[in-house]
């Protein structure tokens, strides 16, 4: 995934970051009861640098951010 790609971050109930690739998806999944509610917009490169093990949902499955980085090669 290109580091410049804008991704959308939400938090689960434990505060863990979940990364989605569209705002529409983030709005669908956002959890009002999460410790940090709402949606945060970031470049994928920021996620990679600060949260390499953040869960990124791409095509029906979760990757760690770092796994999508090496695929991009």
């Amino acid at each position: 995934m290109d580091p410049e790609t804008i991704v959308y971050l939400i938090r689960d109930r434990t505060g863990r970051i979940i990364v989605l690739t569209s705002r529409e998806e983030a709005e669908e999944f956002v959890i009002p009861e999460a410790p940090v509610p709402g949606i945060e917009e970031r470049p994928f490169g920021w996620v990679l640098e600060h949260h390499p093990r953040a869960l990124v949902r791409v095509f029906y499955q979760y990757y760690w951010a770092e796994e999508l980085a090496w695929v991009a090669g």
């Binding site: 689960d12 863990r16 979940i18 093990r53 869960l55 949902r57 029906y60 499955q61 979760y62 796994e67």
Partner: peptide, 10 residues
């Protein structure tokens, strides 16, 4: 459950 990395579940 979603596929892929499993640590989205407790």
């Amino acid at each position: 459950p979603q596929y892929g990395r499993a640590d989205y579940m407790t």
